[in-house]
Design a protein around this nucleic acid. Structure first.
Length: 490
RNA sequence: CGGGGUAUAGCGCAGUCCGGCUAGCGCACCUGCUUUGGGAGCAGGGGGUCGUAGGUUCGAAUCCUACUACCCCGACCA
């Protein structure tokens, strides 16, 4: 399965990186581990942002913005949190440069900051330090804020979109009067994420709870959505954390309840990042390039004219303008590529590489017959159809493509999800097939860590939807009442 | 930080083992003509301190030494 995908190069990782670059989505920058997102890639991200932002607002959230820099002392107030992020922080120590003798510049040793600033790897600490001033009474709650921002995590090894030193994301940070309300918020967001990834990215996900080992640093409970990539590896695509009162206690955020009792605030935080771009690319692409779901494509339809003379182009353009007007009236986004510098064949290949869902080609033949050639990216099928009523045809086709891409990913996942009952079987599947593995686990971190050390597979999550089932842990043989989801992961 | 690899035109590479005369190929770029229904053809053209520094030699992209940068595999990790 995954092997076919990689036909253009030796390994999937190489193939993926090549595709990202060739499809003009992003490239490595001069700064180690950082990425330049190019206009076409950013246009896809903007579509994602727009939909997510709408969904957050529909669920009562508002946007705000907090500082990029976090004083070191804030950062270290929550013990687990600082421990989790300490090894990957960029730190600002000085605020000025000066000229040196050789005409270059050096850091001015006299400009050392009294307290170092951490470039945010996530904003819980700066935000909770701020919330402290905002919250006095139960009347100030809940606070339901989201921030669109960049964060920096100084990873050892990076890969375009999947793990970069700097990445774009949204992070929600909410404050609640009760534990119950905070848990409901955490779960509500998991649903928003799953809804977005499934309905817009056309990628099925498993919602679940992280084990203690995989939990966010400082969280009481971490929910995640996990998606399966075409090479059989799992990609954590979004997380929502129930933070309990950990941050409220660390930053001393208390409120007076209705009963007049002083209590610590309950918190959640949640985020998805440009990593979703990686998921989108890896989940659907084929050897001709990207396959974009219509709901996220920067333009859904591209029109390519085929002509011999400028007069011919002009009459084709007239006809195309009519089509464009009809499509736009339906809310369908169109690009007309009448660039005379590239030939039709070149354009066909180019827009396939870029994953444009539908391509129309119009030439002299079509002009005569009142037709247009329609090619769909997901199946590469081509049809000649009447221009009359084309807008309805395309509207339906776009829905079809969206559904078909989802179905393909869904079927792939179904075909690559297996239940295993022995450790040998487990190792066998990992080695030969990959994919999601449902197996019994004794619930201990020790077992989880041993399995990881021996096979590199991790517990992606304990799915929210599961069946009670008597069984024994594949590793320790101890009793278990349910299966959990294992996989190799990005 | 370990193990492996690479550095030659904007990009991708050959040439290096075994030193030699003007450093070559593909893509891209420029000019012209013919083309245009799946990444056009022909002809002509421009573009290089061969990663940096030093050494050996009549002669170095090629051999030696040091340095630097990047990539891959690990370790680390949303």
């Amino acid at each position: 399965m995954a092997k076919e995908l990689t036909s253009r190069s030796e390994n999937y990782s190489q193939w993926y990186q090549d595709l990202v670059i060739k499809a003009d989505l992003a490239e490595n920058s001069a700064v180690r581990g950082c990425m330049v997102i190019k206009p076409y890639g950013y246009a896809i991200w903007e579509k994602m942002q727009a939909e997510l932002d709408r969904m957050f607002k529909e669920t009562g959230h508002v946007n705000a913005y907090f500082p990029l820099f976090i004083p070191k002392s804030f950062f270290s107030k929550e013990a687990d949190h600082v421990e989790g992020f300490a090894k990957e922080c960029a730190v600002v120590t000085h605020y000025r440069l000066k000229n040196d003798e050789n005409g270059g510049v050096v850091v001015d040793p006299d400009a050392k900051l009294e307290e170092e600033l951490i470039v945010r790897p996530t904003s819980e600490t700066i935000i909770w330090n701020t919330y402290k001033n905002w919250i006095q009474s139960y009347r100030d709650l809940p606070i339901l804020i989201n921030q669109w921002a960049n964060v920096v995590r100084w990873e050892m090894r990076t890969r375009l979109f999947l793990r970069t030193a700097e990445f774009l994301w949204q992070e929600g940070h909410t404050a609640h009067a009760t534990k119950q309300e905070a848990i409901e918020e955490t779960e509500k967001i998991v649903d928003v994420y799953a809804n977005f990834v499934e309905n817009f990215m056309a990628l099925p996900v498993v919602k679940g709870l992280k084990t203690a080992n995989e939990r966010f640093a400082g969280a009481v409970e971490t929910y995640s959505i996990e998606a399966l990539m075409q090479d059989g590896k799992a990609l954590q695509s979004g997380t929502s954390h129930f933070l309990g009162q950990n941050f409220a206690k660390a930053f001393d955020v208390k409120f007076a309840s209705k009963e007049g009792v002083e209590e610590y605030v309950w918190a959640t935080s949640w985020g998805v990042s440009t990593r979703l771009m990686g998921a989108l690319i890896m989940a659907h692409s084929d050897d001709n390039g990207l396959v974009l779901p219509p709901k996220l494509a920067p333009f859904q339809v591209v029109i390519v004219p085929i002509y011999k003379s400028m007069e011919q182009l002009s009459s084709i353009s007239d006809k195309v303008d009519e089509i464009i007007a009809k499509l736009k009236a339906k809310g369908i986004s169109v690009k007309y590529d009448d660039n005379d510098n590239k030939k039709p064949g070149w354009k066909f290949a180019e827009y396939e590489l870029k994953g444009v869902p539908v391509r129309l080609a119009m030439g002299p033949r079509d002009l005569e017959n009142g037709t247009v050639e329609i090619a769909r990216r997901d199946t590469l099928e081509k049809n000649v159809v009447e221009i009359n009523g084309i807008e309805n045809y395309i509207e339906t086709l776009l829905d079809d493509i969206q559904n078909n891409i989802y179905k393909k990913a869904f079927d792939f996942r179904a075909a690559n999800t297996v239940k295993v009952d022995t450790y040998d079987e487990f190792k066998e599947v990992l080695k030969n097939k990959g994919g999601f593995i449902l197996a019994h686990w004794d619930g201990t971190s020790e077992t989880e860590e041993k399995i990881k050390a021996e096979t590199k597979a991790t517990i992606r999550c304990m799915p929210l939807e599961y069946e009670e089932e008597e069984g024994t842990c594949i590793y320790s043989g101890k009793p278990s009442t349910r299966r959990v989801l294992f996989a190799l992961a990005y």
